[in-house]
Simulated scan of single mutants.
Amino acid sequence: MASLVVIKIGGNVIDDPTALKRFLTAFAGLSGAKVLIHGGGKVATQVATKLGIETTMVEGRRITDQPMLDVVTMVYGGLVNKQIVAKLQALDINAIGLTGADGGTILAKKRPVKDIDYGMVGDIEEVDSGQIQFFLRQDLTPVFAPITYNTAGDLLNTNADTMASAIAVDMAAHNDVTLVYCFEKKGVLKDPADDDSVINELTPDLYAEYKTAGTINKGMIPKLDNAFKALEKGVTKVIICHANEVAEAVRQGAGTTLKMT
Rank of each mutant, 00 (worst) to 15 (best):
G32I: 08
V80T: 13
Y76C: 14
Q138W: 00
K114E: 14
V47K: 02
T64G: 11
V43H: 03
R111N: 08
K50V: 04
L20D: 02
Q133V: 14
V143C: 07
V72S: 06
G119K: 09
V58G: 07
R22F: 02
P112E: 09
T141V: 14
F135H: 10
E125A: 04
F134P: 00
L91F: 04
E54Y: 01
T25E: 13
V121G: 00
E54H: 12
P112V: 05
A86R: 15
G103N: 08
V113P: 02
G104M: 06
R22M: 10
A28R: 08
K87R: 13
L136A: 10
K110Q: 15
V113R: 12
L98V: 01
I147R: 03
V35I: 15
V75T: 10
L30N: 11
D115S: 13
R62M: 09
I106N: 05
M57C: 01
K110F: 01
M74F: 07
L24T: 05
E125Q: 13
R22T: 14
R111Q: 10
G78Y: 01
K87T: 11
A108N: 03
E59H: 11
D65E: 13
R137S: 15
Y76S: 10
K114T: 12
K87P: 00
M68G: 02
T45N: 14
K109V: 13
L107T: 06
A26H: 10
L51C: 01
G103R: 09
L98M: 14
D65T: 15
Q89G: 07
M120F: 15
G60D: 11
T99K: 12
V58Y: 05
V72C: 09
R22C: 06
V121Q: 03
L20I: 12
P142A: 08
S31Q: 14
K50G: 04
V43T: 13
D70Y: 07
T55R: 04
V47N: 01
Q46I: 03
G104Y: 01
Y76V: 04
D115P: 00
L36H: 04
F135Y: 15
F144I: 06
M74T: 12
L88Q: 02
P67N: 06
T99C: 14
A108S: 15
I106H: 03
T141F: 07
L79G: 00
G52F: 01
Q83E: 10
K34A: 08
L136G: 04
F27W: 07
F23N: 07
G122H: 04
V113S: 04
V47D: 00
D123A: 09
I124L: 04
D102L: 08
L51S: 00
G97C: 07
G40H: 06
V127F: 03
Q66Y: 12
